[in-house]
């Protein structure tokens, strides 16, 4: 449930970033993009560009939920970090 830091569990749990990324697929995650907006959602998948597909997405900005998307695609270049919102 680490939401603050990018991928703390990842390193500990899995050992490598790609391992982490593999493990969080299907989990609830928080994706922060460059503008500081967060997207909480079920990580459908991601690719090497850090493009991210989320389900049941909530957009959080400034501490408020500003939008919801059933599915959403986040373009990788915007992604700042991805953090797991549930245990891996």
């Amino acid at each position: 449930m680490s939401s603050a830091s990018p991928e703390p569990d990842a390193g500990a749990a899995a050992g490598s970033p790609s391992e982490f990324l593999k493990n969080i697929v299907g989990k609830r995650v928080k994706v922060r993009i460059g503008s500081g907006v967060d997207y909480h959602g079920l990580l459908t998948c991601l690719d090497g560009y850090m493009n991210v597909a989320l389900e049941e997405t909530e957009e959080w900005a400034g501490g408020r939920k500003t939008a919801e998307y059933g599915d959403c695609f986040l373009r990788g270049n915007n992604v700042l970090y991805i953090s797991a919102l549930e245990d891996l």
Partner: peptide
């Protein structure tokens, strides 16, 4: 996860597709 597999979305671009 099942959902994801079922939809056959294997990469984010699929979602756009």
């Amino acid at each position: 996860m099942d959902d994801a597999t079922n939809t056959g979305i294997s990469e984010p671009l699929d979602l756009v597709k």
